[in-house]
């Protein structure tokens, strides 16, 4: 992909995250960014270092490379967070209708699932969270909102996301959290990084 990047395609979200974690363990100096997405990992090198990055990538993805055994891969980047949510979102009833269940059942499914951050995009710290059970899969809203408040917990396109700051958005809003998803001054600016496991807890 251009002079400074390599796009690695993978069959699904799980193998994508697995490869991302393996690559993350030991990136060489030639690599400046590793960007996981839905079914790809983008390897960005320094300009002029793409050949070195490509050699490393081939070695790291070889069948007999250290870490090729899925059991040898560190679990979920080692991190898990629980996020308190007030389920007061204006679209909670719509989500329940779309899924043919009650609002309480939506909340139970949301708090009952273990979510995992597949990748970050859209805005700094905006994680695309996916649940293994896939029960809360709803489409985007027909009409996007011009302004979604920070801390809004939302569902769309098979993902759950939390808006780190006010921005336009087309996802269904089911709740609100006071957790700070993004703070550039923090040692770890993003509360949720790719691979982080996320649980939701109901608060009033």
């Amino acid at each position: 992909m251009g002079e400074s990047a390599i796009l690695v395609e993978l069959p699904d979200a799980t193998t994508t995250l697995t490869l991302y974690r393996r690559l993350l363990a030991e990136p060489p100096p030639s690599v400046v960014d590793l960007v996981p997405a839905e079914r790809t990992v983008l390897v960005v090198s320094h300009p002029g270092s793409r050949a070195a990055a490509e050699r490393w990538l081939l070695e790291a993805t070889a069948a007999d490379a250290p870490g090729a055994d899925p059991n040898g891969i560190p679990a979920a980047g080692g991190s898990a967070v629980t996020i308190p949510v007030r389920y007061d979102g204006p679209d909670l009833a719509d989500v329940a209708t779309l899924l043919g269940i009650t609002a309480d059942e939506v909340v139970a499914a949301h708090t009952g699932a273990v979510w995992s951050a597949a990748f970050i995009g859209f805005a700094p710290g905006f994680a695309y969270l996916r649940a293994a059970d896939g029960r809360l899969d709803v489409p985007r809203r027909a009409t996007p909102r011009a302004a979604v408040p920070p801390g809004a917990v939302a569902l769309a396109a098979g993902y759950c996301g939390i808006y780190p700051r006010e921005s336009p958005g087309g996802w269904h809003l089911i709740g609100t959290t006071d957790a700070v998803l993004w703070d550039a001054e923090r040692a770890d600016p993003a509360l949720v990084a790719p691979g982080t496991e996320v649980g939701f807890r109901r608060v009033d």
Partner: peptide
Amino acid sequence: RAGHAHLGVTA
């Protein structure tokens, strides 16, 4: 600020 793309921050 390359190196933060995985957190949603462009270079």
